[in-house]
């Protein structure tokens, strides 16, 4: 027990610092991928709701394909496929060999694209949950499109979409472990490295579980706090109206 604590601790023989750095990298990667996914999701939800037939069909293809293909393959596609494309360009200029891409960039783009597909559905659902009367009322008192988006549609849709957005966040955190295949030094990769060089995979996977659970639990709590705040604001508004 004492030995195990020294191993995952912060002493000269401890891996604690490495694991924490890995957890920080996991968090950074997840935040970037989530923001990218959110931007893609918002754009695609908007396109699905108000775009022409061609735009809607294209977005349908995007969400169907990215939700129906394993994330690991999408990561490989960007990691090796991106390398293949850069390699092809480099060959034109006379360079040879294999070109790998930065794992952080690959992970952000791959997971961002995958979760953008889920986020599209979540945000679209949030918009559709807004009672039509509210939008009609906003139009009736002469709000412009932008003002209506800012004051009515965005806050209301966000409120309905929040639980789904929280689920997507959890998904991003767990999926980020797959980016370890690119060699990016995130938590899963560090658990792997530590297990390999100490021959103690049990101890380090348990430490990995603890860190991932801490990440998912704490960030889940943050999402719940925001949900509660929004619900509270809504109750206050209702009281003022009454």
């Amino acid at each position: 027990m004492g030995n195990a604590l020294r191993l995952v601790g912060f002493g000269p023989t401890g891996w604690g610092g490495t694991l924490l750095e890995g957890a920080a990298m996991t968090l950074a990667l997840s935040v970037c991928a989530y923001l990218l996914g959110l931007a893609i999701g918002a754009l695609c939800a908007w396109g699905r709701l108000s775009g022409g037939r061609a735009v809607r069909a294209m977005i349908d293809v995007y969400t169907t394909v990215l939700r129906g293909v394993p994330d690991l393959l999408v990561i490989y596609l960007f990691y090796f496929g991106g390398g293949q494309m850069i390699g092809a360009i480099a060959h034109l200029f006379g360079a040879t060999g294999f070109f790998g891409l930065n794992g952080f960039m690959v992970g952000t783009i791959a997971i961002g694209l995958v979760t953008g597909a889920y986020q599209t559905e979540v945000l679209r659902g949030g918009y559709l949950a807004i009672p039509r009367g509210e939008i009609e009322a906003a139009r009736a008192i002469g709000m412009g499109r932008l003002l209506m988006l800012r004051r009515i549609i965005a806050p209301r849709a966000l409120r309905f979409a929040l639980p789904g957005m929280g689920n997507v966040w959890q998904q991003v955190l767990k999926e980020s472990a797959l980016v370890s295949v690119t060699g990016l030094a995130e938590l899963m990769r560090q658990v792997n490295v530590a297990s390999g060089s100490t021959q103690l995979p049990f101890d380090f996977t348990i430490a990995g579980f603890a860190l991932y659970l801490a990440l998912t639990t704490v960030s889940g709590g943050v999402f719940m706090g925001v949900e509660r705040r929004v619900a509270h604001g809504e109750r206050m508004a209702r009281k003022q109206r009454a």
């Binding site: 472990a177 797959l178 370890s180 658990v191 297990s195 995979p201 996977t205 579980f209 991932y212 659970l213």
Partner: peptide, 21 residues
């Protein structure tokens, strides 16, 4: 809580490599 809060890859790694320690 444990199985929904951690990545599947870690769980697989735990069973395949971890237990054999």
């Amino acid at each position: 809580f444990v199985f929904r809060g951690s990545p599947l890859l870690l769980q697989m790694f735990f069973i395949y490599y971890g237990l054999g320690q």
